[in-house]
Amino acid sequence: MQMSNLDQLYRSVIMDHYKKPRNKGTIEGSNVSIDMNNPTCGDRIHLTLQVEDGIVSDAKFEGEGCSISMSSASMMTQMVKGKTTEEAVELAHVFSDMMLGKEHDEDLDLGDVEALSGVAQFPARIKCATLAWKAMEKGINENK
């Protein structure tokens, strides 16, 4: 597949998550709730998680922001469901490394999240992509 075709595929995945976000909303009675924003561009997120016995059983978000920020939140909520809190935080670190252009374990299946790898080429957009992930990590760490 040519790079331009791969770029187009990645753009399509990002726009799909932006236009039809997964896990949009809030979890009534959630035991993790966190609000974060990116003052540089105005992106904001309200993330709720249900953590039971160290496992993220549900994850939802609400917010406003650019397509990268909101699609990243959609992808993140999908990815962390069913993971232990340690696995979820580790995924946040892997995602952060990917945004910084660092190598990550190629055997790790990132699914749709891989579509955001190109954001690393645009330093001003990295904070947009990482907002939901940082919120999830902060929420889990504060809940311990």
Rank of each mutant, 00 (worst) to 15 (best):
M1P: 12
M1E: 11
M3A: 12
N5M: 12
L6S: 03
D7V: 15
Y10Q: 06
Y10P: 13
S12T: 15
M15N: 02
D16R: 04
P21L: 11
T26M: 11
T26K: 12
T26Y: 02
I27C: 00
E28P: 11
G29S: 00
V32M: 03
S33D: 00
D35P: 02
N37I: 06
N38D: 02
N38H: 03
P39V: 14
T40P: 07
G42W: 11
L47P: 07
Q50H: 10
E52H: 00
D53N: 13
G54C: 07
F61S: 05
G63A: 11
C66P: 05
I68D: 02
S69T: 14
M70Q: 15
M70R: 11
S72R: 10
A73G: 06
S74K: 05
M75T: 09
M79E: 12
M79R: 06
V80S: 01
V80F: 05
G82N: 07
K83R: 13
T85L: 10
T85H: 03
V89R: 05
E90Q: 14
L91W: 07
S96C: 03
M98T: 10
L100V: 01
G101C: 10
G101Q: 09
G101F: 08
E103L: 05
E103R: 10
H104Y: 15
H104T: 15
H104N: 13
D105L: 06
D107E: 13
D107M: 10
L110T: 01
L110R: 00
L110W: 02
L110H: 01
G111D: 04
D112A: 12
D112M: 03
D112H: 05
A115D: 10
V119A: 10
V119G: 08
Q121I: 00
P123F: 06
R125Y: 02
I126V: 15
A129L: 09
A129F: 10
A129G: 11
A129I: 11
L131Y: 07
L131E: 04
W133V: 12
K134P: 04
E137R: 11
E137N: 09
K138Q: 15
I140V: 13
I140Y: 00
N141L: 13
N141E: 15
N143L: 12
K144W: 09
